[in-house]
Simulated scan of single mutants.
Amino acid sequence: MSTEPGGPHRLSENDLRQCLRIAGGGTLGLLICKVFNLEYGAFFCVYPMLVLGLVPTLNAHLVRQFLAQGVVVSVEVGVLYGLFGDRPVLAVPIVFLLFLYRFALMAKGPLFFFSALSAVFLSILLHFSSYPQTDVIDLLWCNGAAIWLSAAIAGLMFYLFPDATPRSPRQPIQKDLPSQRHEALLGATVATASFVAFQCLDLKDSLSAQVASILILFPMHWKGAHFAGRIRAIGTLMGCAVGFIM
């Protein structure tokens, strides 16, 4: 967002276009979900908003990362629950390692989009797959369909609401190796703790809380996570209020 010295934050024209893309993508995903009565409808609504919220521009490299992470997560979840689905104690250290390499990639930077989204999707699929009544294969098929549909929706939204002016490329943040290790361990530890908490408690209908527990880690440090958590708490209260009104 653009700012003026001493003045309030204001949305630039590009910021407004991105808001329109996010709102349009989420609405279209919800509409498709309702029209076709799709299972795991949250996937089809949330995924487009995640993609459009994380990337201010879209290119072939980002699309490949998005599709690739879907394949990787599906394979990991299928293998994990095929081998250790009935042994959660053994699954926990494996889950930690899966999150660890994702946050390590996030700390390095070039594959941030791949690793960030795959951390969110891994958390979601691990949560749903842990319930005995869940058909894991059906879950993974729905996840794959939602990913491809989200990629198409994202492309359509960028076509309908392109940026008004070219964006300056983001400059990568240079981090030393100890900082990268710290961020990777921090993210993996908190994400695994979230996984354990959702395994111990019956929170099947709390998808938003689970996703938020991963999203607040994206700043990769405590101060940023605290700020992100506060913003998401406010957003949750606003969303719940709108839901009650509707």
Rank of each mutant, 00 (worst) to 15 (best):
D163Y: 04
A225W: 13
S123D: 03
V89I: 13
H226F: 13
V79Y: 15
P88L: 07
I22S: 09
A23W: 04
V95A: 02
C200D: 13
F244I: 11
V63G: 08
T27D: 06
A197K: 12
A197S: 14
V211C: 00
G29V: 02
F113Y: 14
S118P: 06
L105T: 02
T189Y: 13
P5A: 14
M1G: 11
A152S: 02
W148F: 10
C45V: 13
L186H: 13
I94F: 00
D138T: 09
L149G: 01
A191N: 04
V72Q: 03
S150Q: 01
P162S: 10
S168R: 14
G235I: 05
A23D: 04
C33P: 05
P162I: 03
Y159K: 09
I94H: 01
C142A: 13
L117V: 03
P162H: 07
R181I: 15
S150P: 00
T134S: 11
F84P: 08
M1Q: 13
D15T: 03
P172A: 12
T3R: 12
S115E: 03
L30G: 05
V92H: 03
P56K: 13
F158E: 00
F218V: 00
F103C: 00
M238L: 14
A91V: 03
Q180L: 11
T165G: 08
V190A: 14
F113L: 13
F218N: 01
S150V: 01
I231M: 14
I214D: 00
L185A: 15
F96A: 01
C240R: 10
N14S: 04
F195H: 15
V242H: 07
L31C: 08
C142Y: 02
V75K: 12
A197M: 10
G41S: 08
L58G: 07
C33H: 10
A212Q: 02
Y131N: 10
D163V: 03
P169M: 09
H9P: 09
S179Q: 13
A164Y: 09
R87D: 12
N59I: 07
G25T: 04
G24R: 02
V89Y: 13
H127D: 07
C200H: 10
G239P: 05
L122D: 07
G109H: 10
K175D: 04
F198W: 12
L139S: 01
L67K: 07
V95I: 06
F121I: 04
A191W: 00
V79P: 13
G24I: 03
G155F: 03
A241H: 08
F128A: 12
L156G: 03
V55Y: 06
I22F: 06
S213E: 06
G224T: 09
L160E: 07
K175P: 06
A104G: 09
V77R: 07
T189G: 15
L83H: 05
A104P: 02
S194D: 11
G224K: 08
H226V: 07
E183R: 01
H182P: 11
A184D: 03
G109R: 02
S129E: 07
T189M: 15
V75W: 15
G155C: 11
L215M: 08
R102H: 09
H127Y: 08
A209C: 05
E183C: 06
L156P: 00
P93R: 04
R181V: 11
P110F: 06
Y47I: 04
A152E: 02
G235W: 09
V77T: 05
L140H: 01
A116R: 00
S12T: 15
Q69C: 08
V71P: 03
R87S: 15
F227M: 11
W222R: 14
V79N: 13
G6Q: 11
V95M: 07
